[in-house]
Design a protein around this nucleic acid. Structure first.
Lengths: 306, 306
DNA sequence: ATGAAAGCGCTAACAG
DNA sequence: CTGTTAGCGCTTTCAT
């Protein structure tokens, strides 16, 4: 009997109506992913990481980019609530908006936070140790012998900035040095602004012998700025990036950078979010998990010329 | 009375259940987007274009990447059907699978095709004139005086390849020349393969004085290959790309390329798909629409040295 | 104007 | 093992 029905279903190309299933199951089987205009490679890594967990299976991924969360967290909240999701993956900086988390909790919308930087006890957290990662690159250029090190910070609202900077600080302190505050400039993770502030840095006198950029796009911009000033990388100035994005490999010289395991973190976030949704809370715990970073030394860093 | 209810709704943080609405409306308000491992910037442009039409409004975007469509179109069909979509945006090469289109039509799942290359009469079609675009770059390097021109084709299953190549042919013919078949190599739109075949091309004797790559990633790879062989771009060899992706601007030298209006096309595809769903078929017509390309001459092309 | 009821397509619980 | 039924939350229609 079951067989006969199944056969008929196949013969008729029958597909159950998902809306009806959702209605009765009180589940939409939709997972949201929200992020704010980051680099294409970051977005794609996030998506692919999450998707590789969903495996085109029961759950489907809805993308919900949203700009300027910090100035209007409630609007994002409304958007997410109206989207009829079972759960949502929050990338920076949305994952660091307490008002947003409050709203989601109030409405019982499950969430997982990817690389948050405050209130690390709230909800499911997937992170990397930004401080340790920042420490790695900074220690690397210090070990090469650099002392005048320029720093290009990312968008201050993405709190990754602070953690990485703190890592730089620790590395400098351990080496018995300290960061020169006049060599610290602020970008916003984009190439264009990165280029501008890198020019400022390189015109500084005495010129820094190395630049630590907080992502690869800005590092590539710094290389371009150096080239436009007639400086060779890494001969005249070393440059290190962050993220191990595609551009770090296609750049010339190839960038020394820190691999941020975005894919793995997104997978883990999706995994634990789904575990929570399916009631397997043991799996969702421990609430926080750190993924290892990796320093990739490539061609854009070398000992200073002097 | 209405007011009282509305007030109570706000007070209680009431949000209507979308599954129930979908059930009754026979609509899920979900639009799918399917594509096959293309470059991150292409995916993001596609998504953003589609999203800018959806405006975080009624419709939501579900991403459904799927690899190797050409060898198993029915599987993609099943995936799309089970996803409970109202309509789907098909990027290459899915948009060129007749079996898939058959399935979707049979199941009455609306679709819009983005830059298809065959059966251009089927369904809603958004395209650019690949032949004309190919013609533009080829005419550009010919006008600079290049005669030995190497060509790096993209993945043959993405039929964009053929159209662009045809454009090159026409430009050569008009200039009274013809393409040297020994200088045509096949990549797959990725940097890595692009690098390998570019090396082959540059070791050819006599060496080509210009290379036309069918996307920017492969063009950047060609620049890297040239550099690794001790050749300067554009002094020793000119390189042109295709797509105007971010990497074409961050590369050095900046790439001469063709801007492919991916964003605009994705917007248009979403727009007409939604028009069709909402029963405004007048808007969906004309079925086919071409978006203009634009040749961007930057620093990677120059007259040949000789 | 307000209220009542039917039904969207499905699943789960229960009766035969 | 098969068949029937209630009800998920909403909208639309119809009656009051």
């Amino acid at each position: 009997m079951r067989r006969k029905v199944k056969e008929a279903a196949v013969a008729l190309d029958y597909h159950p109506n998902i809306a009806a299933q959702s209605l009765i199951a009180r589940r939409s089987y939709l997972i949201g992913l929200t992020y704010e205009r980051p680099s294409p490679s970051y977005v794609v890594e996030l998506q692919n990481g999450a998707l590789s967990r969903l495996e085109n299976g029961r759950y489907r991924l809805v993308v919900l980019p949203f700009n300027h969360v910090t100035s209007r967290p409630e609007e994002l909240g409304k958007l997410l609530l109206r989207a009829g999701l079972d759960g949502v993956l929050l990338a920076p900086p949305a994952c660091d908006q307490p008002e947003l988390l409050d709203m989601l909790e109030r409405q019982k919308l499950a969430y997982a936070r990817i690389t948050p930087h405050r209130d690390l006890h709230r909800g499911v957290v997937v992170a990397m140790d930004e401080v340790a990662a920042g420490h790695s690159v900074a220690a690397h250029v210090l070990a090469l012998g650099h002392r005048r090190v320029g720093i290009i910070l990312g968008d201050p609202s993405h709190a990754a900035s602070k953690g990485r900077l703190e890592g730089y600080r620790q590395a400098f302190a351990e080496a018995g040095h300290s960061i020169d505050p006049t060599l610290v400039v602020t970008g916003d993770f984009t190439y264009d602004i990165g280029y501008r502030v890198a020019l400022d840095l390189l015109r500084h006198s005495p010129r820094p012998t190395a630049i630590l950029a907080q992502n690869d796009d800005m590092a590539v911009a710094a290389i371009a700025a150096a080239r436009d000033l007639g400086l060779a990388v890494p001969t005249d100035v070393s440059v290190a990036g962050f993220d191990n994005s595609e551009v770090s490999r296609t750049a010339w010289p190839q960038l020394t950078t820190v691999h941020q395991p975005v894919r793995e973190m997104a997978w883990d976030a999706a995994n634990r979010l789904i575990a929570a949704l399916d009631g397997k809370d043991e799996l969702a715990a421990p609430r926080r998990r750190d993924h290892p970073h990796e320093l990739l030394v490539r061609a854009s860093t070398a000992p200073p010329a002097e």
